[in-house]
Design a protein around this nucleic acid. Sequence first.
DNA 1: TTCAAAAACGTACCTGGTTTGCTTTATGCT
DNA 2: AGCATAAAGCAAACCAGGTACGTTTTTGAA
Lengths: 207, 207
Amino acid sequence: MMMAGLRERKKEQTRRRIAEVALRLFDERGYDAVTVNEIAEAAGVAKVTLFNYFPTKDCLVTEGVKDDLAAIVSGRPEGCAPLEALRRAYLAMAAESTGGMDVESLLARIRVISSSPALMGAMHAVRMGERYELATALRDADPGGDDLRAQLMAGQITAAVTTLQEVFFHRIAAGEPLEEAGRRLAHDVELAFDLLEHGFAPREDTP
Amino acid sequence: MMMAGLRERKKEQTRRRIAEVALRLFDERGYDAVTVNEIAEAAGVAKVTLFNYFPTKDCLVTEGVKDDLAAIVSGRPEGCAPLEALRRAYLAMAAESTGGMDVESLLARIRVISSSPALMGAMHAVRMGERYELATALRDADPGGDDLRAQLMAGQITAAVTTLQEVFFHRIAAGEPLEEAGRRLAHDVELAFDLLEHGFAPREDTP
DNA sequence: TTCAAAAACGTACCTGGTTTGCTTTATGCT
DNA sequence: AGCATAAAGCAAACCAGGTACGTTTTTGAA
């Protein structure tokens, strides 16, 4: 009865092989110039099997890029405001930068995504899902609060995070070393969250 | 020398016929259940001609839904902050609600869009274009300002407007009369722009 | 060893979208 | 009026992502 057996391991292995082959081909020749047929063939698998693992072509790349903002809010420590929890989480992420994952394949992923409008669109779709979940989490965090307010906050937070990621990706794709990009990211995170917290107004201070 | 002749009129007429037929079919049977072939046939036109007028299927519906935030910022009166110009523009839009366009087809459009994930995605793509242009306009409005700051602001503003529109669409699709939805929209606009202007912080007032 | 479930497969098919090359038709000029 | 031209339309074939379906292989356990 399900001893994490050979079967599961083989499945995982196949899935990883497909994703790796796809990423390599995309990086070599561009996302649009590679067909799923080629990927399937190169991975030694039938097209239908590929689509069994990944529901769409873009999922080959965008899988696992969710930041799960909602979880950060839900799991924040007692007495910590949602926005503060998110700020800390992103500062931590900027400090890690490459959290355990293979660096080269991470960079390849970023290159591929940044150079394909279709994938940028797919990323956006992912973000929209996150936004929805975040709105729910924010509503839970502030019961009795305004519903529209939660939605607006979720939208703005998601937008900020998206922009941060895009700028980060852009720098990486432009060849900036990962470490330096990470340092600058930390700075940018502060700016972004200050903007969220205090708004655009602080042009003229009224202390 | 191009006296707006019969040719142009016929073209415009064909284009409108295609769009109307498409909207009607989508509204009757759902976006995904209608193929472009059917639309072309129903409009008495070849598929290739349809794609000559509308580059993609979703453009049949999403054409002309751009709000052109950038133009509002660029064309704002002297001494008026960008955010203030946008607030006024959206308040005005909420007051008009149905600005001259045929109401029934407007409602059909909203119904169709709100009930199709694919079209919601397409709307999003439109918004992303707007965001980019808005970032540029904001940069122009504040020369010497921080580039990232402009991008973040553009993202947040776009997110707010998107949320407002989604809520508005949702109410319309749920059968709320246009006029009432417009009234509530005006109120929501104020909330959204206050949030943008002053941030999330103002839970406890510090006057 | 045997057997049922799960995984992989091959093939044909659908749909959005593009390409090619040909006909029709409005238009501007003489 | 008549004619050349350029725009618009068309039919049919094609491409790629994705799905449906029925078949074969692999695997875990009896």
